[in-house]
Design a protein around this nucleic acid. Structure first.
Ligand SMILES: [Mn+2]
Ligand SMILES: [Mn+2]
Ligand SMILES: [Zn+2]
Ligand SMILES: [Zn+2]
Lengths: 128, 128
DNA sequence: TCAGTAACAGTAATTATTACTGATTATAAT
DNA sequence: ATTATAATCAGTAATAATTACTGTTACTGA
């Protein structure tokens, strides 16, 4: 529904997610943008992140606190249990055969999958 | 730390998760048990679910609302975007080679991974 | 130029989860 | 058995994440 108008804030929010690799939360986006955009509201960040996901410009990563990603092509992720950082795993390419296999064996209509690794990241490993 | 004592409530909560396939949230466990255990408190459910995860009797699935699973061996899951139900995908077996590959290419210490499918479940498909 | 409405900032409300508090109760040593 | 200790409880308050509401601002198209 609802025709979408241009919005300075939405542009800001989208580019903030596009210009980082940290898979930010709504709060992180807000904190990043607030100093240079003092009028920006946290509600606006949430609202626009949801719109950007709805239109396909971002994806939503279902960690227990939601994170957002401007790399909309399917790819794997790694969560460091020590520091909480989220990294892309680029060298494991998306395998559509898994979706077919899951669909065949379960009977559900499988649209896609996400692959989440976890452990301890390089940074945290060095600090030990 | 703290020595663990027997607790009727913890037994209840563990068996509730063990006797269902629905990967319940804390709230679902509470709602299920409350009628026959009117004195049960929601805080008790949260506290014991966390303990049971800590001791390895349950696993925690990091959806945006946390879910719990008594099948602690690694296995894949399917989320229906229509009805929100979570199903096990049993016929895609856990592939430890993926962890090795991710670790080699990223440099992170990879402990494990989770594979989340999503789409529309059989039940919801039939209703269309 | 102005009526209609998308989007905004600010704030209230809702949900999910954890922390606190004083009362119970499992356990183990008397 | 009695009692001492502290784990656990129920109930509730607090915190954190997210969404909804409200009055105002600012595009847009007739
Ligand atoms: Mn990513
Ligand atoms: Mn499962
Ligand atoms: Zn780390
Ligand atoms: Zn369904």
């Amino acid at each position: 529904m609802a025709i979408k108008r241009f919005s300075k804030q939405r542009e800001l929010i989208l580019s903030a997610v596009m210009n980082t690799t940290e898979h930010p939360t709504a709060e992180m986006v807000y904190t990043r943008l607030k100093p240079e955009n003092p009028a920006l509201s946290l509600g606006t960040v949430y609202r626009n992140l949801n719109q950007l996901v709805a239109e396909g410009s971002l994806i939503r990563l279902p960690f227990t606190v939601e994170r957002f990603d401007a790399t909309t092509a399917p790819h794997a992720h790694f969560l460091c249990r020590e520091c909480g950082k989220v990294y892309d795993i680029m060298d494991i390419c998306y395998d559509p055969a898994l979706d077919d296999k899951a669909q065949l064996s379960s009977g559900h209509v499988v649209k896609q999958h996400e692959l989440f690794f976890d452990g301890t990241c390089v940074n945290c490993t060095e600090k030990m």
